[in-house]
Computed example of a mutant assay.
Amino acid sequence: MVLYGTLVNGVCIIAGSLLGLFFTKIPERYKETVMHGIGLAVLLIGLQMAFTTEIIVVVLLSLLTGAIIGEFIHVEEGLNRLGAWIGSKFTTKNENFSVAQGFVTASLIFVIGAMSVIGALDSGIRGDHEILITKGIIDGFVALVLTTTLGFGVVFSVVPVILYQGSIALLATQITKWLPESFLNGFIVELTGVGGLLIVAIGLNLLKITKIRIGNLLPSLATVIIIYYLYQLI
């Protein structure tokens, strides 16, 4: 089953989020320190991914073009509106921001990353779900901790995770007919570099060092394939 790994990942996120709801009443200072710990761990993960890039100009141009597109179509604003809309269905008006923040932050952490792409590609091309199952276990623990600090909005991140990874897995069943394996391997390396920098940005925001509009940088995950293709042609 092509979507098996993706579905397991989604179940782990839901389970982690539900368990996290039992720990939301812990003192604020504990939540703050835990969030700092998460931010530092996210920074480390992002840096490890970013350093895998072999063609820095591809990463740079992908981020630049992605930023322009993201700002033009207001991706960040759209994500916040979606989170607020979801929150309005389950909370009072005053709690909407918290739900939106949990939804957006968790979605970005779970969706952006090498494991999402590589795991989904393995599911679709080879029928190997090990990477996504491993990612699901990690995401479950992260969801638990995030829920204790950001609230139950985290659980809704399962929707973009399943849509994103599921789409890649389904596409991967046909992708080898269009792209040679050598191109695919090189593209994944540069995609990992771009995704790593976005994860670094998430970590900086969690630590409240910056207020980077990460949502508006998300199109760079799409433009990287065009930039990498053009680079290979040149």
Rank of each mutant, 00 (worst) to 15 (best):
Q174P: 10
T173P: 08
P160R: 01
I137N: 03
T173S: 14
Q174A: 13
V155K: 07
D139K: 00
V161G: 04
V159M: 09
V161K: 00
I162K: 03
K135D: 04
V158W: 00
V154W: 02
Q174R: 13
P160V: 12
G151C: 11
G140I: 07
F141K: 10
T148W: 07
S167I: 13
I131G: 00
I137A: 09
G140D: 08
I168H: 09
V158G: 08
V161F: 13
T148V: 08
V159K: 03
S167R: 11
L150D: 02
G140E: 08
F156W: 09
L170Q: 06
L144Q: 08
T148F: 02
V161S: 07
T147W: 06
L170F: 14
L171N: 12
Y164S: 01
V155N: 12
T173D: 12
T134G: 14
F152Y: 13
D139A: 13
F156D: 10
P160E: 00
I133H: 13
I138E: 04
T147Y: 06
I131D: 06
S157L: 06
T147D: 06
G151I: 09
G151D: 03
Y164R: 01
V158N: 00
L163I: 05
I138C: 11
Y164M: 02
T149H: 09
T134P: 11
G166Y: 03
D139P: 05
F152A: 12
G166K: 00
I133G: 03
G136L: 07
I162T: 04
Q165L: 11
V154E: 04
L144R: 10
D139N: 12
Q174C: 11
Q174F: 14
I162M: 13
D139Q: 09
S157Y: 05
T147S: 04
G166Q: 06
Q165P: 11
Q174E: 15
F156A: 14
F141Y: 15
V155C: 05
V142H: 02
G166M: 09
G151F: 10
I137Y: 00
V142Q: 01
S157R: 03
T147A: 07
V159E: 04
L171I: 15
G140M: 01
L163S: 11
L144D: 06
L146K: 02
P160A: 07
L170D: 02
Q165K: 11
L171P: 07
Q165F: 12
L171A: 15
T134S: 15
Q174W: 13
